[in-house]
Design a protein around this nucleic acid. Sequence first.
DNA 1: CAACCGACCTGTTCGC
DNA 2: TGCGAACAGGTCGGTT
Length: 277
Amino acid sequence: MPELPEVETLARELGMALVGRSIVAVEVCWPRSVAAPDPGTFVSRLTGRGIRDVRRRGKWLLLGLDGGEWLLVHLRMSGRLTVGRSDAPGDPHTRVVFYLDNGQRLHFSDPRKFGRMVLTAYPEEWLGDLGPEPLDPDLTPERLAEILQGRRMRLKPLLTDQRVLAGLGNIYADEILWRAGLHPLRRADTLTREAVARLHRALREVLEEAIARRGTTLADQRYVLPDGRPGEFAVSLAVYGRAGEPCPRCRALIVRTRIGGRSAHFCPQCQRFEHRG
DNA sequence: CAACCGACCTGTTCGC
DNA sequence: TGCGAACAGGTCGGTT
């Protein structure tokens, strides 16, 4: 569920709540949520550790700990991280709980159990295959053109490939392609210079606007901020989840199809496959 | 290299 | 109303 804007928002807001705190106890309710090390080692190495940094890489959340180790968290489809008082009401999907020195708890809740945590001194071993950050200033239009060059993949699966760019998922890939006026089935190596420039601009605009609105909370409310409030970008979605509704740009009806086993939404008028632009 | 499929999981929505 | 099928923001590994 959470993509780059959601994890970026979490990193910022969790940072305010967690940096300077320390972990006094850890409870692992669902051992498989801890990918490494084994849960016993995970708990003993975390107990008593201070949190000095919270950041994001792709869709991973990174908590920097005193002593140089990192706690990596990937929320996958249904993971949620919230901070609350000790007497917070019980959640049947709680998988891991971190007890903090100020009486608060960091809750990891995850109904589908896909989310994973890793405690490691070598985060690059887990993050090494990730492509560049879409919002990195070094990712210029020229650099994006090099990335797309020679790739025969269709744009939609390419954008969600974490080795190509880090952090895009199903929602933002659809929104970015709509903003850029590019068909999701268009082959990456067929883009003109001008089309790459549009894609580059769309990447930055969509992601920056979504971060400014603190991410997308859909109807199921699975993604929320650490204090439980929703993100506000859902109302700004142009195509995702809007099949049959008019395109905000041209009023043609949004189409939903299936690409690489995932849903894809686009405007058949604004995003023409035949256009070489 | 590119595409597709099943796994991994549970909860919610859809269609008959 | 009831019930099973289909579907969900992600990723991985194996096959074609």
